[in-house]
């Protein structure tokens, strides 16, 4: 039974969803956006879970990735599929500026990175000759057609973003299971204990920051070529931080699947339900969700559900999640 479940889920995601829902353009657009959120949530959770750092500034990496890819494809004429990972690299490069913040403890790091998000937004607004300023960039090239598959179509966008998010989950899983992952997990509650056995904890944390920034930047780049438009307020919007955090916390940021499931649940609820309830301040429910999860089930819904369903000992759940 067990090995079949992931295959079934994958088959459903790759075949059933496009076949059944592919005709509904609105729903597919929502799903693509939910997957974009999932990608950021996953990157955020990786930094939190393996690096032990809370970031309130992932919008910085998202925006830098988006602008890098858009400009590379439009002004340097690079193919879109090459520009997108370069967008991720651009975000990782931007993370170099954040490196000094690694010395800082919890709240200081969280807010220093928020400061970077603001700085990048203001730079994008002020560097008019490069970014078009607050007017933004229009007509960003869409996704190309690859081997007969129209990536720019609704279904194509969905399949590409899904594949990238799943690839990121696989990367996250590989790091988690490696010896580096072991050391990173140990660093949470026992940093000195890991350092005295030879672990260069600062280097490992920096590596997680780069991986997280690369993932977020790549997702930002993908999104730019999906919606074909950018301006500073959109690209560096606080929503790119708030919604993924709510998603990761809701699903369980210390699990591999939590951010993805959380993102789909939270984003769809937000767009389909909360927006109808509170047209202007619908994020209020995300705030309530965040608060409630932290107080009632800080490890998120996924561990909570699996505990309820299977009543396994806690350690086993953790390993099952790995």
């Amino acid at each position: 039974m067990k090995p079949i479940a992931p295959v079934a889920v994958l088959a459903a995601a790759y075949l059933l969803v496009p076949l059944l829902l592919g005709g509904n353009a609105y729903l597919m657009t929502l799903l693509v956006s939910a997957l974009i959120i999932a990608g950021i949530a996953l990157a955020w959770a990786l930094l939190g879970n393996l690096g032990g750092m809370v970031s309130f500034g992932h919008a910085a990496f998202f925006g830098v990735g988006a602008y890098t890819s858009a400009l590379l494809s439009m002004q340097a004429g690079l193919p879109v599929l090459l520009a997108i990972p370069l967008g991720g690299l651009g975000a990782a490069l931007a993370a170099v500026a954040v490196l000094p913040a690694l010395r800082l403890s919890g709240p200081y790091f969280a807010l220093a990175i928020l400061a970077y998000a603001h700085i990048f937004r203001i730079l994008a607004t002020e560097l008019k000759s490069l970014t078009g300023g607050s007017a933004g960039i229009l007509g960003i090239p869409g996704l190309p057609t690859l081997g007969g598959l129209e990536l720019g179509s609704r279904n194509g966008q969905y399949l590409l973003v899904l594949t990238v998010v799943l690839a990121f989950i696989a990367l996250y899983r590989a790091i988690w299971r490696s010896d580096y992952g072991l050391a990173l997990r140990a660093m949470h509650d026992s940093e000195d204990a890991t350092r005295v056995v030879g672990v260069n904890s600062t280097l490992l944390k920096a590596a997680m920051l780069f991986v997280s920034a690369f993932m977020t930047g790549t997702i930002g780049a993908l999104n730019a070529h999906v919606i074909n438009f950018l301006d500073p307020d959109y690209a560096f919007s606080g929503a790119w931080t708030i919604v993924p955090i709510a998603a990761a916390i809701f699903g369980g940021y210390r699990t591999l699947g939590g951010p993805l499931l959380g993102a789909i649940a939270v984003y769809l609820l937000d767009q389909l339900l909360f927006k109808a309830l509170f047209p202007s301040g619908h994020q209020i429910i995300l705030g309530v969700l965040l608060g409630a999860m932290i107080l009632l089930s800080p490890n998120g819904l996924l561990p909570w559900i699996s505990r309820r369903l299977q009543r396994r000992p806690a350690t086993e759940v953790r390993h099952a999640a790995a």
Binding site: V54, A110, I245, Q283, G287, L290, G291, I294, L295
Partner: peptide
Amino acid sequence: LILTFGLGIIL
């Protein structure tokens, strides 16, 4: 941090 961040969003 996350809780008060959420409370800020609510307010």
